[in-house]
Write a protein that binds this DNA or RNA. Structure first.
Length: 421
RNA sequence: GCGGUCGUGGUGAAGUUGGUUAACACACUGGAUUGUGGCUCCAGCAUUUCGUGGGUUCGAGUCCCAUCGAUCGCCCCA
């Protein structure tokens, strides 16, 4: 029997975990400076939390890990926003939190897709959601937060694509226009687009299969159906980005994968040629009706999600060096019959704050020193039978290769002195 | 979900038109050197074994089929 991780999943081994710790620190620090607070929601929810009516996205329609438990259907979360909004409403946080309520999350998401570089079935997202205030300034600030993190990781080859979907009235008018336009061309479109035609005709526009078809090319433009209010809102968002010095490209084909978006939508992509087919680093937008959908008041929200695996891969491709994990300060060696002296000495040093490894089984001196080498310990404490009897021990500075014999009670002091140099 | 490429020890890998003992290097373990490591030298280290399961053959790591996984492109998306 051959045991291995399921397709599209992977282990993060100790060798690589320091990257994740470092990245999480950068993320938490940045989120905190924007005054976002962490929220942790379950990894699975009732299927109905994700499978909302009229959602045409592949993610919801064919990529969810759902399972039955008794008569209930649950789904491993494919994205973070729905759970956050559900929690916001469930705990009536609109009554107790200052608005906009700002949340962030870090954790695994699950989608049943064909794995590829930058696309796995269990992957990690960092996301933010702010709820309760709708303004161009907030939209711009949200994008700025994501850009901040990307910049801190030394990722410079990025493109910000942005668009507006307008408000309900604009979208309703546009949707009608699209239906009218595509109806006579239905047989020219792909199967997915037939579903989109029913559920959300806007998504036909960014369909890759039908991208070059005449029907798509001649489709009416959303910008022609935006009412004055939506148009002005978008202009203001762009002005805010200009003020923050964030370059962007307006892409009126950008409609995003989830159907709950309204007004601002954006996508930040890597422009590196080696980033593969999965170039999107983070993406999100504004949603006017999600809070209300889950039973809360009529509040608008805005957020985005970053794919952390992609972030790490890109940072490394651009030469970013993540902070290494803590190394060993002291290695304790025992020679001959020294009883529990090694064990006890190591504990004392740890309680004093040092990272200590100790040789806890009998082996040759050479093997012990080799082991000490491999850990990269700055100091080696050698406890020998004779010294132990005399109440002393040896301390060696690995780099200097100098060794002194000190009284047991002076060990800490000696190492502290060396540390100061 | 569709198409292409790939899969040999702990690691990087060699392996000729199928032919007998699966190179080489690194790492690791032991010894030279049983109380002082990083250099050097010596030895060991895949053995019903070449992702897994079948098949062809006198003979398969090499050929065929299936399957699992990785990877690239499509689709989708973070």
């Amino acid at each position: 029997m051959n045991y291995q991780t399921p397709r599209g999943t992977y282990d993060i081994l100790p060798e690589e975990i320091s990257k994740w710790h470092d990245l999480e620190t950068v993320i938490r620090d940045t989120a905190s400076r924007y005054r976002y607070r962490e929220i942790r929601t379950p990894y699975f929810e009732s299927t109905s939390v994700f499978a909302r009516e009229n959602d045409s996205s592949d993610m919801v329609n064919k990529e969810m890990y759902s399972f039955q438990s008794g008569s209930d259907s649950y789904t491993l979360r494919p994205e973070g926003t729905a759970g956050v909004i559900r929690a916001f409403d469930q705990h009536k946080l609109y009554g107790s939190m200052e608005l906009p309520a700002r949340f962030y999350y870090i954790g695994p998401m699950f989608r049943h897709e064909r794995p590829q570089k930058g696309r796995q079935r269990q992957f990690t997202q960092f996301g933010v959601e702010n709820i309760g205030v709708k303004s161009p300034e907030i939209d711009a600030e949200t994008i700025a937060l994501g850009i901040d993190i990307v910049k801190k990781l030394g990722i410079s080859s990025v493109r910000v694509c942005i668009n507006t979907l307008g408000d309900d009235a604009s979208r309703a008018a546009y949707r009608e226009a699209l239906r009218k336009h595509f109806e006579p061309h239905l047989d020219e479109l792909c199967g997915d687009c037939h579903r989109r035609f029913e559920q959300n005709p806007l998504r036909i526009l960014d369909c890759k299969v039908d991208h070059d078809s005449e029907a798509v090319k001649t489709a009416p433009r959303l910008s022609d159906y935006l009412n004055e209010e939506s148009r002005q809102y978008f202009k203001d968002v762009l002005a805010c980005l200009d003020a923050l010095g964030i370059p962007y490209e307006v892409d009126d084909r950008l409609v995003r994968g989830l159907d709950y978006y309204t007004h601002t939508v954006f996508e930040v992509q890597s422009t590196r040629p080696d980033s593969g087919a999965q170039a999107t680093i983070f993406a999100g937008g504004r949603y006017d009706h999600l809070v209300d959908y889950f039973g809360g008041p009529d509040l608008s929200g805005m957020g985005f999600a970053i794919g952390m695996e992609r972030l790490i891969a890109l940072a490394e491709e651009e030469g970013h060096v993540f902070a290494p994990e803590r190394s060993t300060d002291v290695y304790v060696i025992g020679l001959g019959s020294v009883g529990t002296a090694v064990l006890k000495t190591a504990e004392e040093l740890r309680h004093a704050g040092y990272a200590v490894e100790a040789n806890l089984h009998p082996r040759s001196l050479k093997a012990q020193f080799k082991s000490a080498d491999r850990t990269g310990a700055k100091y080696v404490v050698i406890i020998g039978e004779e010294e132990l009897a005399a109440g002393t021990l040896n301390v060696k500075n690995s780099a200097e290769r100098t060794q002194v014999t000190v009284k047991q009670e002076e060990l800490l002091h000696t190492i502290e002195e060396w540390e100061k140099q």
